[in-house]
């Protein structure tokens, strides 16, 4: 009773501080989103036809064509793969940054990690295409080192999409893991070691569980946009790069079927939310 009272009191005090953030969220997300909800329920949106009416057909389209489900599953798998790779690469990097490097070295490496953030995402993706294509930088470099001839063409393939996405989203994982790792008191690690735990056991039983919130936050930040990604798949994936996100993009930019695009977007949003809701209690238990 007393606890809820103080909580309410705290909320009332926090209200003026929260107001700007909520006002912004309302303007920037809620309004466009409601517009999209409205679009998704229209039969058509072209300005010439005045006779558009409300319908659920756009949502039905998703279920009537198995292609959409296939593409959604493929996008979800891509999200999973990219997130896992980001964890495998990002967590150790964050660990080294947070627990091993100190001072200057830490700042320098940190800068390298953040650097992709500062370059334009389109530039980033196109530079990967220069690296990955046949006769590109990676191909040429490998051939100049290796004694035998290899043709190396990752361009327009699934791996190219994965590489491009990992590169784009890795900084999120490094940053969130870094923050949670940095908050772990070094004395905890030393305590575990003094009790006889090897470095690996210490990592597994003390560091990893305590850093889990950071890993989860990073995963959510990566998984959601990757599932809906369209730019990297389109530029790096070629024909194999048709994914749920690219189909949505087509509706908006090529086919001009905004209602269908909006409906597909909301189905994606619903699926992602369900995944997050289902996984939340499980993850909380392990944490």
């Amino acid at each position: 009773m007393a606890a809820t009272m103080t909580q309410e009191n705290g909320l009332r005090k926090a209200f003026p501080l929260l107001l700007p953030a909520y006002a912004w969220l309302t303007l920037a997300i809620f309004l466009p989103l409601s517009a999209m909800v409205y679009f998704s329920l229209l039969t058509s949106m072209s300005p010439s036809e005045q006779s558009s009416s409300l319908t659920l057909e756009n949502y039905a389209a998703f279920f009537s064509d198995p292609l959409y489900v296939t593409l959604l599953l493929r996008s979800l798998r891509l999200g999973l793969v990219v997130t896992l790779i980001c964890i495998l690469v990002g967590f150790p990097a964050a660990y080294v940054l947070a627990k091993i490097f100190k001072g200057r070295a830490r700042e320098a490496i940190f800068l390298l990690v953040i650097l992709p953030f500062w370059s334009n995402s389109l530039v980033r993706v196109f530079s990967w295409s220069m690296v990955l294509r046949e006769g590109g930088i990676l191909d040429t470099a490998l051939n100049s080192i290796l004694p035998f001839e290899v043709t190396f063409d990752l361009m327009y393939s699934y791996p190219a999409v994965v590489i491009g996405l990992v590169h784009s989203y890795l900084p999120y994982m490094v940053l969130t893991c870094y923050l949670s790792l940095q908050a772990i008191d070094d004395a905890l690690i030393e305590a575990a070691r003094s009790l006889g735990a090897s470095r690996l056991t210490t990592l597994r039983r003390v560091v990893a569980p305590l850093a889990l919130p950071g890993v989860l936050a990073g995963s959510a930040l990566i998984f959601i946009p990757v599932v809906g990604s369209f730019m990297e798949p389109r530029i790096l994936g070629g024909r194999g790069g048709t994914l749920y996100g690219t189909v949505i993009e087509d509706q908006f930019t090529a086919v001009y079927n905004w209602p269908l695009g909006a409906a597909l977007s909301f189905i994606l949003l619903a699926v992602v939310l369900v995944i997050l809701l289902v996984s939340a209690p499980v993850l909380r238990k392990t944490a």
Partner: peptide, 19 residues
Amino acid sequence: PVNKRRIGMVFQNYALFPN
């Protein structure tokens, strides 16, 4: 290395595992 020395250590801020 420390984990092979069979020592016991008590830290100033206790360093109990919060998890």
